[in-house]
C-alpha cells in the first residue's frame, strides 16, 4: 500500500506543479466567485440560476481535469521513459496502475472540495443558507463518478496510442453517457428487433454517470437523497472502477517495454 501511496503522491505533485491544471482550477474558482457574488436585476431568485451555472462549470472543469490528468499518466511515463527506472524497482505493474488511479482520483477530490467550498461560501453569503449535507452528497457522488471516469481513461490510455486521441474519445463517451444515458432504454423500446436488444445491452453495459449528477438537488433545494441510495451508487461506481482498473492491468501486465 505504501508503494501505491508513494506513486499517488507523485501524481498529485505533478498536477499542482503543472500550470495548465492550476490555471483551470484558478479560473473556475474565480468565475464561481465572480458569478456568485454579482447582483443581477436585484432578483433574489437569480441566485438559483447562478448556482446552476457554477455547478455546470464545476462539472465541466472536474471532467476536464480528470480526463486530462488520467489520459497522460501512463503514456507520459512511457514517452519520457520514467517507467523504466520505476519498474526496475520492486513494484508491480498493477501497483503502478492503482497508484496512478489513486493519485488522479485524490487530486480530483481535492479540486472538488475547493470548488464546493467556494460555491458554499458564495451562496451562503448571498442567501444565508448552508445546506451542508446537500453539498456533501453532491460532492461525494461527483467524486465517485470521477473515479469511474479516471479508471476508464486510464484503461483507454493503454488502448489508444496517443493521449489526445484517448482524451477526445473518452470525453465524447462521457458527455454522451451524461446527456443520453438515461434515455437509451426509451430509445430501445421504440426500436424493432433485434436492434432493441443491442440498444438495451448498451443501456445495461455502460456506467450510468448521469445518476451521479444531482445538481438539481442543490439548485432547487430538493430533499436529501436516501443514504442507502448513496451507498448503492458508491458500490455501483466502485464495481465499474474496479472493472476498468482490472482491464487496464490485463492490458498492461504483459506489455513489452523496450528501454
Amino acid at each position: 500500500m505504501n508503494k501505491v501511496v508513494a506513486l499517488a503522491g507523485v501524481v498529485i505533485k505533478e498536477l499542482y506543479r503543472r500550470k495548465d491544471v492550476y490555471v483551470l482550477f484558478v479560473l473556475t474558482a474565480l468565475i464561481t466567485l465572480v458569478i456568485g457574488s454579482a447582483k443581477f436585476f436585484n432578483d433574489p431568485k437569480i441566485v438559483r440560476y447562478l448556482v446552476e451555472i457554477c455547478l455546470l462549470l464545476i462539472w465541466v472543469s472536474a471532467i476536464v481535469i480528470a480526463v486530462g490528468t488520467a489520459a497522460r499518466q501512463i503514456p507520459a511515463e512511457c514517452e519520457n521513459r520514467t517507467i523504466f527506472p520505476l519498474l526496475a524497482k520492486p513494484v508491480t505493474r498493477g501497483q503502478v496502475i492503482v497508484g496512478k488511479f489513486l493519485g488522479c482520483w485524490l487530486a480530483c477530490g481535492i479540486t472538488l472540495v475547493a470548488f464546493y467550498l467556494f460555491l458554499a461560501i458564495v451562496r451562503g453569503s448571498r442567501e444565508q443558507y448552508w445546506p451542508l449535507l446537500h453539498y456533501f452528497q453532491a460532492l461525494w457522488l461527483q467524486w465517485m463518478c470521477l473515479g469511474v471516469i479516471v479508471a476508464m481513461v486510464l484503461f483507454g490510455s493503454l488502448i489508444f496510442s496517443a493521449p489526445s486521441a484517448n482524451a477526445t474519445i473518452c470525453v465524447i463517451v462521457i458527455v454522451g453517457i451524461l446527456l443520453l444515458g438515461r434515455h437509451l432504454n426509451v430509445v430501445a423500446f421504440r426500436q424493432p428487433k433485434p436492434l432493441d436488444l443491442i440498444v438495451y445491452s448498451i443501456y445495461f453495459f455502460i456506467p450510468h454517470l448521469e445518476w451521479y449528477d444531482v445538481r438539481d438537488m442543490l439548485v432547487h433545494d430538493q430533499p436529501l437523497i436516501n443514504w442507502l441510495a448513496i451507498l448503492g451508487a458508491t458500490i455501483y461506481a466502485a464495481v465499474y472502477t474496479a472493472t476498468f482498473l482490472l482491464l487496464a492491468w490485463l492490458r498492461f501486465r504483459r506489455k513489452p517495454l523496450n528501454a
Binding site: E14, N80, T82, I83, F84, P85, A259
Partner: peptide, 16 residues
C-alpha cells in the same frame, strides 16, 4: 528487484 540498482543509459526521471 528488491536488492538491485539500475542505471539506464539516459536519464529518465520526473523532472518536476
Amino acid at each position: 528487484r528488491q536488492r538491485i540498482g539500475y542505471l539506464p543509459e539516459l536519464t529518465y526521471y520526473y523532472k518536476f
